[in-house]
Amino acid sequence: MRLLPEPSAQSLRLIFLLIFVMGVAPSPALTAGCPGRCMCDDQLVVQCVGQQLTDFPTDLPLATRQLIISNNRIGELPALQLNYLSDLVYLDCSNNSLTDITESTFGNLRKLAYLDLSFNILINIDDRTFGPLASLVMLRMTDNPTLSEIHPDAFAENLALQVLDISRNNLTALNITTLIALPALRSLGISGNPWRCDCDTEDLCLWVQIEGFKFQAADVMAECRGSTSPFLTKSLRTDCHQTLGYWDYLFFIAIGFVIFSTGTVVAWVMEEISCVREVWWS
């Protein structure tokens, strides 16, 4: 059997040096650099918390998995920069100055599972705003005092969504059609909004009563504006589903009589015309 030659001392030094370099080599997140006033670690986490930033941080590592930019004064999430982070799974933008987000904002964040937009000044949410976020599991969007409207189809494509918190905004009505259809939804926070007590919110009121186990706040049932009674009152149900009154029945009888009379007259006229034709041809 042929023996391999023993490595020389120089070869051993080169091997040890290579092992050392490989062992301490920084992760992809670090090799790509780290934004100023931010902290990056080898777990692909970038933290820029409370740094008085007014702009979205630039030169973020492309392999970033978690990005925390809370407690700053950032007014915009630039789609071009944000969507380079295609591996992002956790994004905390809470306590900033965000006013507007669109479909393009999150267009390439297919892996994002956690998104926090609380304590901003968002105004409305369009139908496709969260559409690209197919993996979104938790969405926190609380304490936006200017948020007064959420499109009925805003969450229609977020089939993985389990937790949604839209508490303490300025919402007066909410279409729950798409929420009911979400198969994974198990928790919904809606407390602290100035809900209207009218027929537009009747479905929401009824859902709160039936699916109460999904709601995070027990006081939701008593949040009807200007009322201390339960959220869905008997009077509201009565107002939204009024029974027919005396005059309603008279109206339908009159309409039926007119239709019947018209049909009778038309039939008589057609019969007379038929008789005249027979006499004429005979």
Rank of each mutant, 00 (worst) to 15 (best):
G245I: 02
G256A: 12
N120W: 07
D126H: 12
L185D: 10
L82C: 03
Y84H: 15
N96F: 06
Q209K: 10
R168H: 13
N124G: 12
V220D: 06
L174H: 01
E278W: 09
A181N: 07
L98I: 10
E149L: 15
M138A: 08
Q66D: 09
F231T: 01
T129M: 05
P61R: 04
I255S: 01
L14M: 04
L206W: 09
E211K: 09
T228K: 09
S27H: 12
F260N: 09
I125C: 03
E202N: 14
M221G: 14
F215P: 03
R110N: 15
D143P: 04
C275V: 12
A254I: 06
M138L: 14
D127C: 10
V279S: 08
C40S: 05
S8R: 14
F231H: 03
S167M: 00
R237S: 09
I190S: 04
L164I: 07
Q162R: 15
R2Q: 15
F155Y: 08
L115H: 12
N144P: 02
V137K: 10
M39H: 12
G256K: 00
S227H: 00
L185W: 06
P5K: 11
L30F: 03
Q81F: 05
R225M: 09
N175F: 01
L206A: 13
I176M: 04
I176G: 04
G131R: 10
V21N: 05
A154E: 06
S148T: 11
R13E: 13
L174M: 06
G212A: 13
G189Q: 02
K111R: 08
A160E: 11
R110K: 14
C34T: 00
I180F: 08
A254E: 04
T178Q: 13
I166G: 02
L98F: 07
S27T: 13
T228H: 15
R186H: 08
G23N: 07
E103T: 10
C40F: 04
N71G: 11
S8H: 11
R37I: 08
C40A: 01
I210D: 11
T146C: 09
R65K: 13
S86N: 15
L164R: 08
V208S: 12
E223S: 02
L62M: 07
L3D: 13
Q81D: 11
C205D: 09
A25Q: 15
F213T: 09
L122P: 03
L91M: 11
A267S: 11
A134V: 15
S261D: 01
N83R: 01
L109C: 04
Y90N: 13
P26M: 03
V266N: 02
Q66V: 06
S135R: 08
V46A: 00
E149A: 10
V269T: 01
Y90V: 13
C93R: 05
